[in-house]
């Protein structure tokens, strides 16, 4: 019945994941938010079941001589939450869109 509350940065993170950003730093780049904001959101949403995470194959990573990365994707709940957030922040986007276009 009760649904998780999505903050504006939270909506940005969900949007970033929906647009295909899978790793923490990529999500940061897309959402334009600092890591100190993005990571806590990722952890919380994962705990809430809006996101789920996986680890890269160890062999694959080690073969390339680097540590394995953790990737995130939306769950069904996450998609629904994003949907609701998008409706809620629609006006917001309208307000800022022209400016972003100008900028």
């Amino acid at each position: 019945m009760s649904q998780p509350r999505i903050t504006y940065p939270g909506a940005c993170v969900l949007q970033a994941v929906a647009r295909g950003c899978r790793y923490g730093f990529d999500i940061m780049d897309f959402a334009g938010l600092p890591s100190g904001t993005v990571y806590p959101i990722l952890r919380r949403y994962e705990a809430l079941g809006l996101l789920r995470s996986d680890w890269e194959e160890t062999d694959n990573a080690h073969a390339k001589g680097r540590p394995r990365r953790r990737n995130y994707e939306l769950t069904l709940d996450g998609e629904a939450a994003l949907q609701r957030a998008a409706e809620r922040f629609a006006l917001h986007q309208r307000i800022f869109a022209p400016e972003e276009a100008q900028g």
């Binding site: 649904q3 890591s35 100190g36 806590p40 919380r44 705990a47 809430l48």
Partner: peptide
């Protein structure tokens, strides 16, 4: 630089943050 903040956050129990 966001790592310390994330580390601190990870100590907080995740509230079921529902209105």
């Amino acid at each position: 630089l966001g790592a310390p903040r994330d580390a601190l956050w990870s100590r907080r129990p995740t509230r079921l943050d529902t209105p």
